[in-house]
Design a binder for these strands. Sequence first.
DNA 1: TAGATTGTTAATCGATTAACAATC
DNA 2: TAGATTGTTAATCGATTAACAATC
Lengths: 206, 206
Amino acid sequence: MNDKNIPDIVIGRLPVYLRSLQRMEQEGRQVTSSQELGERLGISAAQIRKDLSQFGEFGKQGTGYNIEYLSNQLLEILHIDRTWDVVIVGAGDIGSALATYNGFSHRGFRVVGIFDNDPDKVGDKVGDYVVANTSDIEEQIQANNIQVAMLAVPAGNAQAVASELIDAGVRAILNYAPVSLNVPPDVRVQYIDPAIHLQRMTYYLD
Amino acid sequence: MNDKNIPDIVIGRLPVYLRSLQRMEQEGRQVTSSQELGERLGISAAQIRKDLSQFGEFGKQGTGYNIEYLSNQLLEILHIDRTWDVVIVGAGDIGSALATYNGFSHRGFRVVGIFDNDPDKVGDKVGDYVVANTSDIEEQIQANNIQVAMLAVPAGNAQAVASELIDAGVRAILNYAPVSLNVPPDVRVQYIDPAIHLQRMTYYLD
DNA sequence: TAGATTGTTAATCGATTAACAATC
DNA sequence: TAGATTGTTAATCGATTAACAATC
């Protein structure tokens, strides 16, 4: 019922809608409209209505969308009406910052472990975690049915580690390593590389 | 000559091409083809050729692209044939990780300062920097003609800080705060929010 | 009822791909 | 020359927008 092949670009906007709705909820707001949401986000109202209409009819003519209701619907659609266990691979600066980041727990994710292959780091404390050896990661992933990983290893190791994670059962990778990954079609990858994002903007500067 | 209104989505791919080319260069390679590059990146060869053709003719029929030459062309196109000074606003976990990240210097950027409005943090050492007071940032931006900022403040402050930065002269913002920013049309924003990226992938999991 | 806003259709706009002549 | 690969055109595909009947 859900799936009639929604474009990925639509899926990519839903978390942004959700984030904005949750903020409105915090502000004590009850109702919003596609127009208001669009103005906040810099997206056309028509696009927001079109995106949402892919999944159902969540609004009311004349009044708009109930914020709490729509938030809950988006949580369900995005499968974050549950908590996903996540592993971090790489206990360098980036991995450590991710391990101590407190923005995940409210938003559907729980970090359950951080791994590194450097014997000097294994056993170190990072936030609430003790760095474990990467050689133990497959076991952990399988024992806890973990499908989501954040990858923060050096570029040279990233493909090999990603492949191991995938073999062990991971299906979604947030990749901080500055390299493109080759993965099977049923595995999702998102890329975060601050230099890439900056380079995309300097084109417009002079 | 450069500008005949290139789609932003094309601009977004160029840094990815560049990163891959630079890696090939490191591997000692001299020449590549749109096909090889496409396989590495999971992009069609036709698209790569089309993208590049927006800016000139960089290849040779029968042989492909000289890696060093094409890299240099992309550096020029993206305006990273120079170094951009960048400020970090927010000296929390994310700002601190950015300040100690060593991936910027090779790729066209130099962090010149980190700022926070928390008196407890001002004066602290973070990597090679001493945290300065956010109230001094406008002066710094103007004195050094800084056009690029990374924003790592709490969501509630982000819009206000962004507006100040823009007033002071910033034209490109890499925003780590989990909130959409409203900016004038001549200012570029890129968003990094790990939770958003993860939520975009869980849709496909079950 | 009058005003507002949805969900949806059709039109427009833009991006990707396939194909191939040119040529190294 | 034969083989490979570019740059580009035209065709296809997909996404966005404008408009409006439905209706709260």
